[in-house]
Design a protein around this nucleic acid. Structure first.
Lengths: 332, 332
DNA sequence: CGTTTTTTTGCAACCGGTTGCAAAAATACT
DNA sequence: AGTATTTTTGCAACCGGTTGCAAAAAAACG
């Protein structure tokens, strides 16, 4: 079906190597030869088989894009940015959707069978050990949205969740709230743990502030709403730092359903600053996570690693910032 | 770096063919041989190179997943379902993100270079000709969320947008609205055109109903909000059929911002029934599009085509249904 | 112009597998 | 046991490219 190098060579009356070289830039070919080959190729509609060449060059330009966050709206943007960014550099994303508890080894094996040049693990909920499995298998890996660390074992690009927790606490205190609560996502996620740490890190220095905490069982609207409805059965806090924006919207929904007003009765601060947070009928005050920078930086790191696979692991941490909207009362 | 067939063969003291056969099911190998090979393979940590084998078998198990809808939240679910579904069948999605006006030929060429076994074009906004380019290049293709047709030129799986338009019109009329408007997405999208056709198809039979129409310039919150704010400057209609759910939410936002109430003052019906439509603080009445079925069916069709590439093109159209929530007044 | 140097080309081996075919081994049959 | 049959195995060629090396051609030099 498809035209091969050999056929082009025959048509152009040259050797197969000549054709190969005509399609490899930087190769030793005369202008004349290149034109002759290109003509034949064009007439035949030839385009080189990337996989066959990968066999000898050792490069497939395939990059595994591994994630388990196919329910969080911000990840649509993440995928958008990743696919575009990789494509722009001539790399091809091979998408891997981890079902809830996929064996890391299985993914690693699969991606090695396809000889990916590298893998990006894009997930805020996978344990650091997951990315490590790739590194151990000799696959260059970047863990995007992974846990920040001062002694990273693999390349990590993301935010400092502990600092986000602190930031949320400071923001709430500055606005005069005195009964604060942490309403986290799944307790098993490192992001939840870190935000918790940071949040109470600051609050512990404020004995006048009353605190409480609880966890929703997923980063989802329903989980947030359910948990908030439960909390509303007794006396709720004055303000909540929620696990993420989706959760926050569930929480908002629960609050308004029960007849209370935001921010008058209860304040909410989320995390992520997803597209919808900005929507006027949601108008969520939240902590902005610089997704674009994280993705861009991840890709740069990936590209760098393709040339230098044993690059010393680094953590690239990007600062977050509070985006003031309408779910927190203003500064006094 | 990676272990090859040859090394396993040497270690096991057998021929290379034997090793190859041990890893191909259905091949002629004795139980004894298989065990011997597997042992050696395990000790060496060998796993076969899928790309090398594709060279002779002609099958890569790679499927191009081509889309330009990286901003519509329902597509996150679409990608989730596609990647899972393909993975479950041992197929690997190679993701292609079409930047606004990518040349179909370029995508086709790229996917052919990677010898994909087939391609799924998942898009409600690409012209039918796009998918045809794949077919013409000999790549089995399914156009998911494509325009329904009684004489499809490529396999199409989706909904009947004309019928959706009719359904919206009937729904609004049944609820007693008498000044109706169509607030479509981009006029260039076939989905917009078809819904328009269906909508006015029904309304033309109702001379007592007053109608109007306009178009937002994207399927986005902002575009919907902007257009509705514009419409609110004069006398708005009693009810709007909006291009999709995201658009609808923008419209809702504009309406409440201007102090009117939904559904008391203005009724809204969307299309897609995305995750968020269900959220209690949005609670959008909308037309449900059976995404899961569309994806499942697309994958089945794709798998069928891998065995039978010249299968006669068919259109698989799934029925939609109105989901009653809170943005339309109830039936009288 | 002949000689040296540089560039271009083709040969042949290789990348990591698969597969048709014939020989070898195992099984079945008399 | 000897022969016919079936199963298993290895050889060698092939899939579609790349690349080191040496020969051929072109360019530079005296």
């Amino acid at each position: 079906m498809a035209i091969t190098l050999k056929e082009v060579a025959e048509r152009a009356g040259v050797s197969r190597s000549a054709v190969s070289r005509a399609f490899t830039d930087g190769a030793s070919v005369s202008e004349k030869m290149r034109r002759k080959v290109e003509k034949a190729a064009r007439e035949l509609g030839y385009s080189p088989n990337a996989l066959a060449s990968s066999l000898t060059t050792g490069r497939t330009k395939l990059i595994g894009l591994v994630s388990n966050n196919f329910h969080n709206p911000i990840f649509l943007q993440v995928f958008d940015l990743f696919t575009r960014g990789l494509q722009d550099r001539g790399l091809r994303p091979l998408l891997v959707n981890l079902s809830d508890e996929t064996d890391p080894e299985a993914s690693v094996r699969m991606l090695r069978q396809y000889s990916v040049d590298g893998a990006v693990v894009a997930s805020s909920t996978l344990p650091p050990g997951f990315a490590r499995a790739f590194r151990d298998a000799g696959v260059p890996v970047v863990h995007s949205f992974g846990r920040s660390s001062s002694t990273p074992q693999v390349h990590v690009v993301g935010i400092d969740n502990v600092e986000c927790g602190r930031m949320a606490a400071r923001t709430l205190i500055a606005r005069g709230y005195r009964r604060l609560a942490f309403l986290g996502g799944p307790q098993s996620a490192t992001s939840t743990q870190d935000r918790y740490t940071g949040f109470f890190d600051v609050l512990n220095a404020h004995p006048e502030v009353e605190t409480s905490h609880s966890f929703a069982d997923a980063y989802s609207f329903d989980a947030g709403r359910r948990e908030m409805l439960r909390l509303l059965e007794t006396t709720p806090a004055e303000a909540y730092f929620c696990g993420d924006d989706v959760l926050s919207i569930g929480v908002l929904s629960a609050i308004t359903e029960s007849g209370l007003k935001v921010p008058d009765d209860i304040g909410i601060i989320g995390l992520n600053d997803m597209e919808m947070a900005r929507w006027q009928n949601i108008d969520l005050t939240t902590i902005h996570q610089p997704i674009r920078q994280i993705v861009t930086s991840s890709i740069e790191l990936m590209v760098a690693m393709l040339d230098e696979p044993d690059r010393y692991p680094e953590a690239r941490i990007f600062p977050c910032s509070v985006i003031e909207r309408g779910t927190l009362r203003p500064l006094p």
